Amino acid sequence: MAESIHTPELASGRVRINDIYFLAENDSEFDPLKGAANLSVSRNHARISYDPAQKKYFLLADEGGLPSRGNKIKIFKTTDAVIRADVLGMNYELADGDQIELGGETKLLFQIS
């Protein structure tokens, strides 16, 4: 069974498995030679979903990624626009090449292959 860092329990009691996660210093897999621990991204920060009817990908902010929790999410569009994803449950469209910033420190490149 995966450790709790990989499978956060949601308020509904359901458990979601994270595809991307950042290790804390107390995690058994943490290696300080590979980098510092990331304390700015929560276990329930954001998720990406695909809508087959629209043939589009969307980012949704979770509770852990909201400014009220001291966190934030930004999407840096390929058009140079910057979108703050700070409304719970709202769909923010993603396009190939967009950059997603989590917690003001971590950037992910969104690519469709």
Rank of each mutant, 00 (worst) to 15 (best):
L88M: 13
R69W: 08
I112W: 15
E63F: 10
F30I: 01
T78C: 01
S42D: 09
L109F: 03
A85L: 01
I17V: 12
I48N: 02
S68R: 09
I100L: 14
K77L: 12
E101G: 05
L60A: 08
A36K: 12
T7S: 06
F110K: 06
A37R: 03
P67E: 08
G35L: 06
T79A: 04
I17W: 06
K77N: 11
D80W: 15
K107V: 03
I112E: 10
I100T: 09
V41K: 03
K74I: 05
D19W: 07
A11F: 04
S113C: 06
I75A: 07
L108T: 02
Q99M: 08
P67K: 07
A53T: 07
P67Q: 06
R84G: 11
P8M: 10
S68K: 10
S12C: 10
M1K: 00
D86T: 01
Y57C: 03
D27V: 09
Y21D: 02
P8A: 09
I83F: 02
A53D: 12
L10T: 15
L33K: 07
D51A: 15
L109T: 14
I48M: 04
F76R: 01
N18Y: 13
G35N: 04
L23T: 09
E93D: 05
E105C: 12
M90G: 08
G13R: 06
L23F: 02
I83M: 00
G65Q: 01
I5E: 11
R47N: 09
A11D: 09
N38D: 07
M90I: 14
S68Y: 11
D98P: 04
L33E: 04
G65V: 07
T7G: 03
F110Y: 10
E101L: 11
D80Q: 11
R16P: 03
D51L: 11
I48F: 08
D51I: 13
N38I: 14
S113D: 10
Y50S: 14
E9H: 15
G13H: 14
M1R: 00
A95H: 15
D62T: 00
A11K: 12
Q54V: 03
A46S: 10
L102C: 08
T79Y: 05
E29Q: 13
G97S: 05
L60P: 01
L102K: 03
E25P: 08
M1V: 03
P8T: 10
E63S: 09
A46Q: 10
K34A: 12
K107H: 06
D80G: 15
A2Q: 09
